[in-house]
Design a protein around this nucleic acid. Structure first.
Lengths: 175, 175
DNA sequence: TTAATATTTCAGAAATTTCAGAAATAACTG
DNA sequence: CAGTTATTTCTGAAATTTCTGAAATATTAA
């Protein structure tokens, strides 16, 4: 696929941002490319457009698939795999949230619960420390609930909620 | 500072999670340590407890300070710098949100605006591509608004909002 | 001011991550 | 089935990041 200057700018920036949050550059670039593309792309096209090794594309696509961000599509009379991603930013956001929850929040919740349990029959750990660990656990459980709520909302409701903005505050202010 | 097994577990996990989100292990471990500690710690104590180089502690503290997550405290009759962090997970969350907004969201908003501007007098970039870039921009602007809203809310209001949960949906459902 | 203590900077070592190229495997075609 | 094409896996090279130890700088106390 031929990239115009604007598209190139977009793809490169996405690559940089990817590295800021723990995804590697190529993975993020491929995702950006698929997002911009109006048609599914095969691995060869991605390789040529981004100028990276074919093998690198293969690995990166696997990574994107593990996040459920990219899926395979087949075209008639073409036995190569083609790849595409969602075009709706909101859907992308939801999917990434879900991935992060699984990779970051869930393991942390487990660990914190373990720590709290360990702490119960533990004489040496100061009470204050146990208390603080408990508070982090409670906070993370709240985040988890929050995530559950947001996940359940249709995009339109969420939008209204955000647009509603400050009004919510006064609404909730006097209970 | 002497770490009990529970504390060690917590600190090590935090270090691992840090790497998942773009903060390096030592930085995250130091933050965890300061969070657990009931008193401010000096660099030497951190060095000994975590078993890393003194210089590494210095650099990492700088990083934490740039996030506004750690501040210096001075004790009487002790000229060494001592460090502490907020103990309220909510406050931590807010501070981290703000940092991420500045480092991730703001530059992306700028870039997207540039792309949209560039696109206006651009014949070669397909209309569909321009459209998708616009949609990402709108999405990110919404996120920005959202962040602004949340930042303004007192913790208690936010908590209510989350706890309210599914009810919000029906409340907003019929406008 | 000098000596003692505390902190930062910096160059390179060590560890980790990313990536290309080759080789292996799989899938399809005729 | 043999040949062709597509895909994945693997190994080591290259790049990047993290970290240490030493040296330089700054701060305080006497």
């Amino acid at each position: 696929m031929q990239l115009t200057p604007v598209m190139e700018k977009y793809v490169l920036h996405w690559g940089e941002m990817g590295t800021r949050w723990g995804v590697n550059r190529t993975v993020a670039q491929i995702h950006a490319l698929l997002y911009l593309s109006s048609t599914p792309l095969n691995a060869e096209e991605i390789t040529e457009t981004l100028g990276v090794a074919r093998s690198n594309v293969s690995t990166s696509i696997k990574e994107l698939q593990s996040w459920q961000l990219v899926k395979v599509v087949h075209l008639l009379r073409d036995r190569r795999d083609h790849f595409e991603t969602m075009k709706d930013p909101w859907e992308l956001f939801y999917v990434i949230m879900e991935g992060r929850k699984q990779r970051e929040l869930d393991p942390t919740l487990s660990l914190l619960r373990e720590c709290v349990l360990d702490g119960e029959e533990d004489k040496q750990t100061p009470a204050g420390v146990k208390q603080r660990i408990k508070e982090v656990l409670e906070f993370m459980e709240t985040l988890d609930t929050w995530h559950g709520q947001i996940k359940g909302l249709p995009k339109t409701t969420l939008l209204k909620l955000i647009k509603l903005g400050a009004k919510v505050q006064s609404f909730l202010g006097k209970p």
